[in-house]
């Protein structure tokens, strides 16, 4: 069985996640089959694009009912993280509810562009996924909506205001940034996830 199962659904380009796993020599499969996902060893749930469209794709495949009950290590990235939350302001859509947190749009502020595009630092770590990563290291972000700070925040980033760079609860891990193109830091996070 491949080490990682990537969930396939209509949420943009999952290729960069596959190539990132290729680079660190991790085996994977890409699938939308519920039985393959339920029996997977570890799961990555990528995502780019718009939240309500992505949620519709999950509902069409019945994945919205399956994902919250999964027990294996599960990593959501970018929109994948947002879909694990309770609700998204983007398209005003109810999401999977693994994290009891709303996803909201960045407030407008002079001198700050939306989306946030580029490298920003993460700090205040509370996750084993960040072993070997230094407080203040940089990761690549590209987003207009964010998860506010909560009890499940395990890494913080500041853009307009402090928000959740990463979330964690039980077997569910999530990063708002694109770990697949976040340099050596992103690769370390994937390696730590594979080792869980």
């Amino acid at each position: 069985m491949p080490e990682i199962t990537i969930i396939k659904y209509n949420a943009g380009n999952v290729m960069s996640v596959m190539y990132a796993l290729d680079r660190i020599g991790v085996s994977y499969q890409l699938t939308d089959k519920i039985e393959d996902i339920q029996s997977a060893e570890k799961i990555i749930f990528p995502g780019v694009g718009e939240a309500s469209t992505a949620m519709k794709s999950l509902r069409d495949n019945g994945l919205d009912k399956v994902i919250p009950d999964l027990k294996q290590p599960f990593l959501g990235t970018c929109v994948g993280m947002q879909l694990l939350c309770k609700h998204s302001e983007e398209g005003d859509v109810n999401c999977l509810g693994v994290f009891d947190i709303p996803i909201v749009k960045f407030p407008k502020k002079e001198g700050f562009k939306i989306p946030q595009t580029g490298w920003n630092s993460i700090s205040d770590f509370k996750s084993e996924l960040l072993n070997g990563v230094r407080d203040g290291d940089y990761v690549y972000y590209n987003h207009s909506f964010y998860a506010p700070i909560s009890a499940e925040t395990v890494a913080t980033t500041d853009y307009i205001l402090p928000y959740s760079g990463m979330l964690q609860k039980d077997n569910f891990y999530a990063c708002q940034f694109h770990s697949e193109i976040s340099g050596d830091v992103g690769e370390q996070i994937f390696k730590n996830f594979v080792k869980l």
Binding site: M15, Y19, Y140, I181, S182, D184, G186
Partner: peptide, 27 residues
Amino acid sequence: AHTINIPFTVGGGISSVADVSALLNAG
């Protein structure tokens, strides 16, 4: 895409959804 771990953009001669799709799929 198999070599670097930072974002990259590709331009030049792109004029359709199919062109973009091919490039994104390539990485």
